[in-house]
Amino acid sequence: MTISIIGAGPGGLTCARILQKHGIPVTVYDRDPHPHARNQGGTIDLHADDGQLALREAGLLDEFFALARPEGQEMRKLDPAGNLLEHHVPDEGELFRPEIDRGRLRDLLLDSLEPGTVRWGRALDKVDGSRLSFMDGTTVETDLVIGADGAWSRVRPAVSSAVPEYAGITFLEAWFDDVENAHPELSALVGQGSAMAADGDRCLFAQRNGGDHIRVYIVQRLPVDWVGAGDTPELRTRLLDTFSGWAPKMLRMITDNDGPYIDRPLFVLPVPHTWEHSPTVTLLGDAAHLMPPLGVGANLAMLDACELALALAGSVTIGDAVAAYEKTMLPRSVEMARQLENGAEGLLDLD
């Protein structure tokens, strides 16, 4: 069989790794020109009942634990004055959902693949039956296309007319570097994991990353184009006005960031999102079920990838494998999407 995966994220790479473990050839195509062309994002927690299951099947669980940060499971809930309301400190040896930086996870998966598995600089244009057409004018014939290319998937239109919709919530990302030396007050406030505070309309969510970094997400209910063309000083002034009344030590998450803010409006797929079975095209991860970023996205993508790879390894035909995979994946993702529908609004709630 000839299998083509579009997208070298956690889901696509996990699928490729497990397929290769079962002796099945696979090629991954990614639009980035090289593995380190862009920042891969912040930290994610991989759960014992999905993301870690996929890594165990991939033979990479021990390597993951060597890189992960169990102390990142610490969680602090604050009020706008900076008072500690709730505090979860992980037990010694607790490994249910340790944190790992996305870049480290991606490197772990990439290094586990056979040389040449990922073809960089191959931006997909469209899928037509079993033919892949790329932006550079080249085409590839394949037996199966796996769309692991995220929210704005170029594979999805081959099986579904659904498009992501703005959820009404926006995350403005702020980076803090060398936090122990340059931002010691913020470091002490956040701890080794995450800290969040909300007042019903606004939320500050801070996550410690590896390498002495912290990322803060400024969460608000705003129009999708609210940022406009404003520069960082102008945005900072607007944010300070919005968060007036919050304690100065909390406002450091807004005022002391290193570099510009990054606007990340939240988009989701309609619920439920399903499609008619195709024996030559299927989807996994955000391409299949884009949900609010509440700790399930990467985990579900990796679980999808694991189940699809095992189905391909154990079925007589590709069509049988895809049907078996979708029979489990689609109901699970629909149920989870219903549970999380409008879930980003909950980040703003006092409770």
Rank of each mutant, 00 (worst) to 15 (best):
I3Q: 02
S4H: 12
G11S: 08
G11D: 01
I18V: 13
L19F: 13
H22M: 05
G23N: 09
D30E: 15
P33G: 13
H34P: 05
D45N: 14
G51I: 01
L53M: 14
L60I: 12
D62P: 10
E63H: 14
F64N: 07
L67K: 13
G72E: 02
N83L: 03
L84I: 07
L84F: 00
E86Y: 02
H87V: 00
V89D: 12
L95R: 13
R97K: 08
R97H: 10
I100E: 00
D101G: 12
L105K: 09
D107F: 08
L110N: 04
E114P: 07
G116Y: 15
R119E: 08
R122V: 02
V127F: 14
S133C: 09
F134G: 11
L144S: 09
V145T: 12
V145L: 10
R154K: 13
V155I: 05
V159C: 02
A162G: 03
P164I: 01
E165M: 04
Y166F: 14
A167W: 00
I169S: 05
T170E: 06
E173W: 02
D177G: 01
A182D: 14
A182K: 11
G193W: 07
D199G: 08
G200Q: 03
D201A: 15
R202M: 06
R208T: 08
D212E: 14
V216N: 11
R221G: 13
L222P: 03
D225F: 09
R238T: 13
L240E: 15
T242N: 07
S244W: 06
W246V: 03
W246P: 00
I262P: 02
L266R: 01
F267M: 11
V271E: 08
P272Q: 10
E276Q: 09
T280W: 05
V281A: 04
L284T: 11
A287P: 05
N299P: 01
C306T: 01
E307M: 04
V316S: 15
A321F: 00
A323Q: 04
A323H: 04
K327I: 01
L330T: 11
E335V: 04
E335T: 12
E341N: 06
L348F: 04
L348T: 04
D351V: 07
